[in-house]
Amino acid sequence: MTSTTPPLPTLQLIGGGKLGRTLSRLWHDKGYFSINQILTRNETTANEAQDFIAGGHALWRWSELSAPPQPCLWLIAVADSQLAEAAHTLSQQQLVKPGDVVFHCSGATSSTILKPLQDQGAYTASIHPVHSFANPEKSLSSFAGSHCAYEGDRQALTQLLPAFEALGAELFEVSAKHKSLYHAGSVMACNYLVALLDASFASFAAAGVERERASQLLAPLVHQTADNVFNTSPQAALTGPISRGDHTTVEQQLQALEKLNPEIAKLYNQLGQQTLHIAEQQQQATPEDLQRIQALLDDGKN
């Protein structure tokens, strides 16, 4: 007797952006899922996604979408602002069968946004990779080891967690009702770090330090600071004028930044408030000096 290999589970991809095409390509290369249809907003992006994945069939009209006869998985990989509309449209198409798995990878939105499909008998979930997909080609080799937060129906997770584990993901559970707080933490550490460094570059430029030199001096400083925070704690890692209660330096910097750019001065002020809380826990500066810094920061809010 000859044994036959069971067919691979089928994955339908709605949205062919960087995340969707990267995950689909990884599963395709692993031989974990068979990529069936790839639906994007226009012909160009659909074909680009298909070429990158090296599998699937490109579509760019909802009316062209069909469902395979066997139960399948649907990855809705669109922008957060489009998730509700995509779920509603897919439910109207009545292509999702009872027992299908529908999931998205948003960090800010829970799987409850997929309720129209859940009402049709689908199992729904959300799995958010804490990974930058800015360069999909690079992500193909760097995704393994990425941490992924999950929540949703047990029946959906039974299929999805092994699929992400096959890509080398490190999985952890997060409460659906706390998704916004969870994602805010990621945004502040990642996206806002970019904004903070942009403000830092602007300050250096105004001081006459060219961009290349600023990058050279900031890179080791940022890396060392991050290492200190992760290896110890924010309280152990904090240094600088607020940590030592140097209210004179804080006042001078606030005045200089106000002349340079009031928006950057506001940023300095707001981050100073949070830094002050850490300094208070350190108990290195005197309460009097920290109170004077608090007064300076309070004045800056007006």
Results as ranks from 00 to 15, higher is better:
Thr4Tyr: 00
Thr4His: 11
Pro6Asn: 01
Pro9Ala: 07
Lys18Phe: 03
Leu19Ile: 06
Thr22Tyr: 01
Thr22Val: 05
Ser24Val: 05
Asp29Glu: 10
Ile35Trp: 00
Leu39Glu: 06
Thr40Ser: 15
Glu43Cys: 04
Thr44Arg: 15
Thr45Glu: 06
Phe52Tyr: 12
Ile53Tyr: 06
Ile53Phe: 02
Gly55Leu: 04
Gly55Phe: 02
Gly56Tyr: 06
Trp60Met: 02
Glu64Arg: 14
Ala67Glu: 09
Pro71Gln: 07
Cys72Ala: 15
Cys72Lys: 05
Leu73Ala: 09
Trp74Gln: 02
Leu75Val: 08
Ala77Thr: 01
Ala77Gly: 14
Gln82Lys: 13
Leu83Ile: 02
Leu83His: 10
Ala86Glu: 04
Leu90Met: 10
Gln92Thr: 08
Gln92Pro: 08
Leu95Trp: 05
Leu95Pro: 11
Pro98Thr: 10
Asp100His: 13
Asp100Glu: 08
Asp100Met: 05
Val101Gln: 07
His104Tyr: 10
Thr109Ser: 12
Ile113Gln: 03
Leu114Ser: 03
Leu117Tyr: 02
Ser132Gln: 04
Ala134Asn: 05
Asn135Cys: 01
Ser139Ile: 05
Ser139Thr: 10
Ser141Ala: 11
Phe143Val: 02
Ser146Arg: 04
Cys148Ser: 00
Asp153Ser: 11
Gln155Val: 01
Ala156Asp: 04
Leu157Arg: 03
Leu157Val: 06
Thr158Phe: 00
Pro162Asn: 08
Ala166Asn: 11
Ala166Thr: 11
Leu167Gln: 09
Gly168Met: 07
Phe172Ser: 12
Ser186Glu: 07
Tyr192Pro: 07
Leu196Ser: 04
Leu196Gln: 07
Asp198Gly: 12
Ser200Lys: 03
Ala202Met: 08
Ala207Ser: 14
Ala207Tyr: 00
Gly208Glu: 07
Val209Ile: 15
Arg213Pro: 01
Pro220Met: 04
Gln224Ala: 15
Gln224Pro: 00
Gln224Tyr: 12
Thr225Ala: 12
Asn228Leu: 10
Phe230Pro: 00
Gln235Arg: 14
Gln235Ile: 15
Leu238Gln: 15
Gly240Phe: 13
Asp246Ala: 13
Gln255Asp: 14
Leu257Trp: 11
Leu260Asn: 03
Asn261Pro: 12
Asn261Glu: 11
Pro262His: 04
Leu267Ala: 04
Tyr268Trp: 05
Asn269Phe: 01
Leu276Met: 03
Leu276Asp: 09
Ala279Leu: 10
Gln283Tyr: 11
Ala285Asn: 07
Leu290Thr: 08
Ile293Asp: 09
Ile293Trp: 10
Ala295Tyr: 05
Leu297Glu: 05
Leu297Gly: 03
Asn302Val: 02
